[in-house]
Nucleic acid binder design. Sequence first.
DNA 1: ACCTGAACACCGTTCAAGT
DNA 2: ACCTGAACACCGTTCAAGT
Lengths: 229, 229
Amino acid sequence: MARRSAEPVSRRERPAKTALTRAGIVAAAVEILQAEGLERVTMRRLAEKLDTGPASLYVYVRNTDELHAAILDELLGSVDLAPAAASGDAGWRERLLQVLTSYTGVLFAHPSLASAALVARPSGPHYLALVETVLELLREGGVPDAQAAWGLDALLQMATATAAEQGLRSVAADARDEEERLTAAIRNAPQNRYPRIVALGDDLLSGTGPDRLEWMLTAFINGILRTSR
Amino acid sequence: MARRSAEPVSRRERPAKTALTRAGIVAAAVEILQAEGLERVTMRRLAEKLDTGPASLYVYVRNTDELHAAILDELLGSVDLAPAAASGDAGWRERLLQVLTSYTGVLFAHPSLASAALVARPSGPHYLALVETVLELLREGGVPDAQAAWGLDALLQMATATAAEQGLRSVAADARDEEERLTAAIRNAPQNRYPRIVALGDDLLSGTGPDRLEWMLTAFINGILRTSR
DNA sequence: ACCTGAACACCGTTCAAGT
DNA sequence: ACCTGAACACCGTTCAAGT
């Protein structure tokens, strides 16, 4: 089948090629993330989706890490900040936990992104809105400013790290391997050398889901309240 | 310059090629880490150093992540666990902080490894020894077993995440960029939308070093003590 | 069982040249 | 200013074939 010109075919084969914009690039990146995971959100794959060469993306995005941070901020738009405002319905602690749980949930849906978030913190508007909300709840709870400033970071860090760990566990086969190695190591630990590990046993690895995170966050909030700088 | 045979030259050019072992592979990997950073600890670079092809390594190491975990456990051998045993000299809290600070110090020296540790937890003997020590100190402090089991993980996580963040800041130019973006975002946050962020200002990013970590750990230890499961 | 060469299927980033 | 083709300098992992 000969064709006289490639144009009409290429018009049919792919969506109309729109001008590149940062927003469009990030949106395409999110689509790839949803469909194929963060490992596939590469400059080359993204360029292919946008029907251009990878070099073109560097006009809008400094490098791959910045791209990942932009994707994360985009997704943080779906964190539910509403509980924070609903005062009266529940205490500030409970509402703070709700917000942080919503944040974790978003990361849970994209485990690989949670890992990236540990390294590359975002700085976009959605991230700032989350920070503002958490700070406001801490203020409502009477946490002194200095303690809130340092506590905020740790709270988000804990939530992010938990999502990364838990998420990987359920997805990557390699992470499963690693977990099994750790479980085996703990089960087989000789009692004379590791008495406390043996004493606590499986509880060290128990409840790795939301229960554990909620306890961790609660414990840390209690600590923030009582620990001055 | 012609040579009749490559053998004598190759004997001079590189160290005598010893048989591959897992220990030898990990040792070579640590050398590359020290000299060139974790980014350069690739299967190919490692094979080159060991004078073989990358495929040969897969007999001893399942994949790159497992290699990274093995390197980390190796380095954890230099964590100073001695303070834990020196009871009487200082309270258990202080000694726990000393151990965790030593752990952070090791990771600080290899920031990229700290990031890897957040994703790929090790399960080797040195890691188990660290876990055992922390658990024993928590027991000494009267922390109930259930709380120690879940608290342990969070303590190590906080120390690891802090090292990863702080370490990257001092090394990677990209991370510097990111920090600057975040600093700028916080400084330029409009007061009407983000009043708490503006109120706390630079304190949100202050003291990102050992002081901050010590406060975080102390706060969390206080929380562990008071928060039952 | 261990080791290897060669291949497969990818990467990020830069740069000179075009529009 | 924006966009591109082409190149540079790499990756992890597998597999058939050797010892």
